[in-house]
């Protein structure tokens, strides 16, 4: 385990591992996603109350789970940046942010498209919806922070602090439906007394969740690879700029 972590701390070895794993992960994602969509449209019955609108849950709920899971990954990576200074930690956090933002946006959009026919409103400022919107704003804020600081190391440390401060929102999102009187229904899958959903609907939901998780892992590894290459390009551009600088010229302070 220790050896494996040491190996992964080396970006070149990490890139080699990603090159081997990505085709398999992409293929597995495509297969499971195809099964999930088949079950969602053809293998799932209409709900006795929601009718076919229950099919929106097969993209809404996994997106909601992934929006939280992605932020949790960023929080762990942030600890890796601040405590262990792991070379891939802030690469992981930065690569995860746009993916988390995408899942959060899908969660909010599909929730709105479900809310209009079921609740009679596109949006309501209840605790669950508002805290989920705050999560989207946090993802966008972190992406903006990374883009606003040139040095990846400084940007990574600043973003790590902000990410860890933002983790306070995760339990608020999860338990908002228990702590406050919300229009959003309480948990129906992850409950101490077990899921309250019929297996004919729970099965497609869990398959969709596996498909979305595989997609997240695939995209996250691919985005981490891009970020490592981007940093190599930046390092080489700085070497090229120094080499091409006229003799005796001094670098501009701060660059």
């Amino acid at each position: 385990m220790g050896m494996a972590l040491t190996d992964l701390a080396n970006p070149t070895r990490f890139l080699a591992l990603v090159a081997r794993a990505l085709p398999w992960l992409a293929a597995a994602t495509a297969v499971v996603m195809a099964i999930a969509f088949y079950l969602a449209f053809f293998g799932s019955p209409a709900d006795y109350q929601q009718g076919s609108t229950v099919r929106i849950m097969y993209v809404h709920v996994p997106s909601a789970w992934l929006s939280l899971f992605c932020y949790a990954v960023m929080a762990v990576a942030s600890i890796g940046t601040l405590v262990w200074r792991h070379p891939l930690a802030d690469v992981s956090a930065k690569a995860a942010a746009p993916i988390g933002a995408a899942f959060t946006f899908i969660c909010l959009a599909t929730g709105s498209l479900w809310g209009q026919p079921m609740w009679g409103t596109w949006w309501i400022w209840d605790a669950r919806l508002t805290s989920q919107l705050v999560l989207l704003l946090m993802y966008l804020g972190l992406m903006a922070l990374w883009r606003s600081v040139d040095d990846p190391g400084r940007a990574g440390r600043a973003a790590a602090v902000l990410t860890l401060v933002g983790t306070i929102n995760l339990p608020i999102i999860k338990f908002s439906v228990d702590w406050w009187n919300t229009l959003h229904q309480p948990a129906s899958v992850f409950r101490l007394d077990g899921p309250t959903i019929h297996p004919s609907i729970l099965t497609p939901l869990l398959v969709a969740a596996i498909a979305f998780t595989l997609l997240f892992v695939t995209l996250h590894l691919a985005a981490m690879r891009n970020e490592i290459l981007r940093r190599r390009v930046r390092a080489m551009q700085m070497v090229a700029a120094q080499r091409e600088m006229p003799a005796g010229a001094e670098p501009v302070p701060g660059e």
Partner: peptide, 23 residues
Amino acid sequence: MFGSDPHTGFIFASYAVTVVTLG
């Protein structure tokens, strides 16, 4: 597929948003 469900448009819009965003 959805019979005479009156909310088919909402269902397809949800999947369209998902596919376009992830795509």
